[in-house]
Amino acid sequence: MGALREQSAGSPPLAVQLMKAMRAYFAKGLEILAHVDRHAAGVTIREGGLKFADKAAATRFDKMQSEFLALYDEMQRLSKEAKKAG
């Protein structure tokens, strides 16, 4: 019966991986919202996109957006795997 304990010590099941990926995705969303909150005074909408008065803030925003999309891709991949596994 120790086998169960050993199994549980390995990589987590797909459902757990998916939940953790979703959590990371939501958390990144919150991080982006907080970032925009912090620089709200210097934010304008131009050419259908967000423009920051502070260049560093703009760079950080772009980085966080790409991280957000990467987390979305990871979530989609795990979701497809989970569907395949049934």
Partner: peptide, 27 residues
């Protein structure tokens, strides 16, 4: 909330507040 994060809707403070509440609940 996710849509808010990736669109220009994020510029609106009230929309951001609502999105934050939704994401916090999802977490």
């Amino acid at each position: 909330a996710v849509v808010v994060v990736v669109t220009e809707d994020i510029a609106d403070a009230a929309t951001r507040r609502a999105a934050r509440a939704t994401l916090t609940s999802a977490i």
